[in-house]
Amino acid sequence: MAIIQYPPSFGAGRLARFVKGVVWLLLVVLVAVSITFALSRIVPADPARLAAGLEAGPEQVERVRQDMGLDDPVMVQYVRYIAGLVRGDFGDSIRTRGPILDDVVEALPASIELIVVSFAIFASLGILAGIIWAYWPRGVHAILLRAVAVAGSAVPVFWVGLLLQIVLAARLGWFPVAGNLNHAAAGIAEVTGAGLLDALIARSPPAMWEAARVLFLPVMTIVIHNIALTIALMRSSLADQLDREYVRAARARGLSEWRVVMVDALRNALNPVVTMLGLQLGWLLGGVVIVEVIFSWPGIGLYAFSSFQAFDYNAIMAITVLATAGFVLVNALVGQIYPLLDPRIREAR
C-alpha cells in the first residue's frame, strides 16, 4: 500500500489543522460505515432469521424483524444507525443480546495489551537490528537479518501462530496453548483486565511471570511478521543517511561515532520508519484478529471473529467504526512526530 500522506495537504494554522483533522476523521469513518452498511443490506443472509433462532416460526421471525426495524426502508435504517452512532450508541449485539459497547469495553484491555506489547517489541528490536545492519553491512549477522527480513514478510501469520503453538506449547509444553491470564488462579484482582498490568498493580512477581508466559506466543507471532518490514526499512533508510556528506563532515569535526550515527544520522533516518510503523498499526488491528483466534485470546479480535461467524452485523459495523477511527487517530499522531524529527517541516507549516 502506498505511504499515506497524512493528513493530506493541510494549510497553515494550528486550529485550522485541528478542525480539518477532525473533519477528515469523521469523513473516513462515515465512508467506512456507509460501505459496510450498504453491503450488509444487499446480502441474502437474514439477520432477523439469525436473531430469532433456528426453531422460530415465520411469525416469530417477522416479529423480530419489526422489533429490529429491519422492515423499514434502507435509508431510514441508515439514518437511524448514523444517528445512533452520533449518540455513541452502537446498537445491540444479536449474539450476546447486550449493548455492543459493553462487549467492546470488556474485550478491549486484552487486545490493547497484546498490541502494545507486540508493537513495543517489534518496533524497538526492529529499529535496533536495522541500525546494526546498516552500520555493519557485512557479516553473518547481515545474512541472518536479511533472511529474517525476507522470510518474516512472506510468512502467513496464522501459520506461524499454529507452528509456535504446536511446537512450543503442545510438544515442548513451555507455554500455555491458549487463553489469557486467569486472574483468580494467579491470585490477583482484575483491575484493568490487562494481565500484565494487573499483576504489576498487585505487585505480584509470580503473576507477572505467568502473565508474560501467557503473552509470549501471541506476541511472538505478531513480532515475527512485523519486525521484518521494520528491519528492512530502518536499514535502507539509515544506510542512505550514512552515505551523506554531512556524516563525513561530522566525523571530520571529531564527533564520536555514537553522536554521528545515533544523533545526526539516525534522527533523519527515522522519518520513513515512523510513517511505516503507523501504517503497520493498520495491519495490526486486523492481524490481531487472526492471532487472538489462534490463541483464544479474549480480546476484541476474538469478539470480531465470533461476530463474523454469527453475522452479527451491528457488532461488525461497530468494530469497523472503532478500528477506522483508531487507525486515523494513530496516523494523525504519527503526523505530529515528523516535525519533531525534521524541523524543516515545522517551519514549512
Binding site: Y246, R267, L341, R344
Partner: peptide, 9 residues
C-alpha cells in the same frame, strides 16, 4: 550545504 545536518540547527 552538504557539510551540515539539514535537520539540526
Amino acid at each position: 550545504i552538504n557539510s551540515w545536518n539539514p535537520t539540526r540547527t
